[in-house]
Design a protein around this nucleic acid. Structure first.
Lengths: 247, 247
DNA sequence: ACTCAAACCTGTCTTTTCGCAGGTTTTAAA
DNA sequence: TTTAAAACCTGCGAAAAGACAGGTTTGAGT
């Protein structure tokens, strides 16, 4: 069963949801409902080490993951050794897409941990059951996917219309929004290839943009430690692509 | 109320759903349910002429549209006079995204008819009501958005990794799949700018790719009438980007 | 059938992005 | 602390994509 250790959920794990700090988690938000509480018995908890791939694109989908604690990249496999990072997930986020449901579905993405992470897991059968019994939870899932869709379409536009430099800046600013910074250093450890795979360019281009930004005093990049020195100026540079009300 | 004529639904329109041929329509599929049947009373039917913009990005979302009959492009406004076509809709398709729900939401896209079209419309309030009462319909909506998300993420990858020529070929093949062809001519009337706005490039590039494909005997393009002469060869050319099980 | 604006097309030049090659630095494990 | 692999960096030439200018064709409305 991979090289992770898997723990069958029990009453202890049910109470984990009660004490869970991920208020943005869809399950957590609805866990007061007795029907949903019933679902929690079917939850599994899994731990993965940094760099482990726990969803593989194209394989039969058996269930849905939630990040309990950790950081994850979600990627679509591309041509040659290229891949496209479609988004990042952390505490509370859903991972696995449609993978959870449908009849004969396959995972449309791969997912890999960026650091040691703990994930919650529900089988598609259990989750479908509870969603059909609880329309509020189902509605929340629908809203979640609708919002993700909107975000993804914004990304389509940005990839099509922004220059390489702009896309890299956009990526760095996203990391700050999503994972935050401490002492002007991003709380996430990505290599240049990861930034490239997210921005839709090559490692070399990312390096070039980082170097230039460093010279301009906008970025602080010592090896893998990236720090944003002037978020306002960076934001300003890509502002023409950021429309109000649409991210 | 725009420059369209709007018709308050009545029993006649309710029966329209019964006789509607759009079997892929989410409402149609669930219209046997008495709760959903109740919703149909709140439906409006709207007719728009070719080229009319009926959803404007950034304005307050009041409801959700379904294409009853016609063709629509869904776009995200970009910088300068550029826009990004994120997808096309036709009979049975949902238009308006999350626009239908949520509390203080705004349309994240614009939508414009590509030919004279008839649309069905539901207010967000009515739709939310019925979705919370009918978990099966809600579940179907969720699946729909999950699938759209998966498709959108595939598009992210393609825009990031394909060349201009490949993206244009991909667009032409999509038109064939989505709208079909008769006598080797696509059943959709797009100008070169539209192809560019979908493929993430410029009008000139599209024209150049079309010219080249014409010389190679792969495409038939007389003005706006586009015909695919050798779908197999075109498909073959982009096949390395098309992974099994993930579109 | 006529007219004119919109759409289409092509050549040329500029800019951007990429790929490769070969180096240096960082990092993590022994 | 040593060491080796991974990651990072830079220069250079090639290729791809884009911008602009000006000409031709198409097609919708009269």
């Amino acid at each position: 069963m991979n090289s992770s250790w898997r723990v069958k959920s029990n009453l202890h794990h049910m109470s984990e949801c009660k004490s869970c700090k991920n208020l943005n988690c869809l399950i957590k938000q609805n866990s007061v409902d007795p029907n949903v509480f019933q679902l929690l018995e079917t939850k599994h908890t899994l731990k993965y080490k940094k760099g482990q791939q726990f969803i593989i694109e194209g394989t039969p989908a058996h269930g849905l993951f939630f990040a309990y604690q950790g950081k994850v990249k979600v990627v679509k496999t591309g041509v040659e050794n290229r891949e496209q990072i479609v988004r990042f997930a952390q505490d509370g986020d859903v991972i696995g897409h449609r993978g959870g449901f449908g009849s004969s579905s396959y995972y449309s993405i791969s997912a890999e941990t960026l650091e040691d992470s703990t994930l919650c897991y529900f089988s598609k059968k259990d989750l479908k059951n509870i969603l059909l019994k609880n329309s509020r939870l189902c509605f929340d899932f629908m809203l979640f996917y609708a919002d993700e869709l909107s975000a993804s379409e914004t990304r389509v536009r940005k990839l099509a219309q922004m220059s390489v430099r702009e896309r890299v800046i956009d990526a760095v600013l996203l990391m700050d929004r999503k994972f935050g910074s401490t002492d002007q250093l991003l709380n996430i450890n990505l290599n240049r290839k990861d930034y490239a795979d997210y921005s839709g360019t090559t490692e070399e281009q990312v390096i070039r943009v980082f170097s230039k930004l460093k010279k301009e005093g906008l970025l602080n990049a010592k090896g893998r430690r990236i720090g944003i020195l002037n978020p306002a100026l960076l934001q300003e540079e890509i502002s023409k692509h950021i429309l109000p009300k649409s991210q």
